[in-house]
Amino acid sequence: MANVLVFAETRGTALRKVALEAVTAARALADASGGGEVHALVAGAPGAAAAAEQLGKYGADVVYTVEHPALGTFERESIAATVAERAKQGGYRAIVLGFSTQGRDLGPRLAAKLDAPIASDVTEISISGDTVVVKHPGYANKVVLTLALSGSPVVLSVRPGAFTAKEAPRSARVERIEPAADPAAARVVVKEVVEGAKGRPDLGEAPVIVAGGRGLKVAENFKLVEALADAFGNAAVGATRAVTDEGWRPHSDQIGQTGRQVSPQLYVAVGISGAIQHLAGMRTSRTIVAINKDKDAPIFKVADYGIVGDVLEVVPALTAAVAEARKHH
């Protein structure tokens, strides 16, 4: 029997999707090791503790809440110190968090503070005796590595979307704790958080992604991609590296080996030829649609449904058809 600690990431005071996925992964690990408890730690501005109830619904037995006005932004030093302190006190088998931008930052800090072996971006977790075994796609998703971690505790960050958050209700005991280091005394100070495009889900969380490539020819035509995303209603907008290099879209929209790696339910590639660099970022999407004028474009090798044609004609027609189809829901 082994207990598992989850760092439940928030933005502002709202839980991120990956926080619940981490709880689900931790629940499975605790159950597999003979019925241990899942403890979650949520840190944020006053109000963040309200997330405790939701964490219990997804399988946390205990929720530690840390509230401080300075924790409204990601105060990495204070949060790392607080999670590490809790981990030391709790004697956990594993500390689980999401492989988000913040989780990528926090995981190695915890590993160093706890002198714990770490695996990043894991898609499967199992435990056999003294060894925790995980799968982690390396080489930009081109090679799947099975890693064995010896020692306890271990730090594991889970790939967003790899574990589907499942309800497993517990009446979570909520305990308020203090930050282990003063968030106001952090050396790295967040001066400002600039919000991106409003009203769209993030690439890592959207069930549908519409992405545009150089086949759109000019920056103005990207509005066709936006319009198709609007028609789906729940879609995020992404771009290829060529497009972000051209400055048509911000770098943060880039999907590919060196950008975001995404696995939505539906990925619509508009005017994207399918360079290896791009495929590495989206080939794990469940359903892929491609629209491109070149029938030999490599994107068609991975597309479940391909349409050969001029994106400037096909995309508006598809936008209208999707809007029509959704009307009848």
Binding site: R11, T73, F74, S100, T101, Q102, R187, V188, V189, V190, K191, E192, V193, V194, E195, G196, A197, R200, D202, L203, G204, E205, P250, H251, S252, R260
Partner: peptide, 16 residues
């Protein structure tokens, strides 16, 4: 001083 791109946002930070 640095800029970090987050998912759908960016942080501007300062440090010694």
């Amino acid at each position: 001083s640095a800029r970090r791109d987050l998912e759908g946002a960016a942080e501007m930070v300062e440090f010694p």
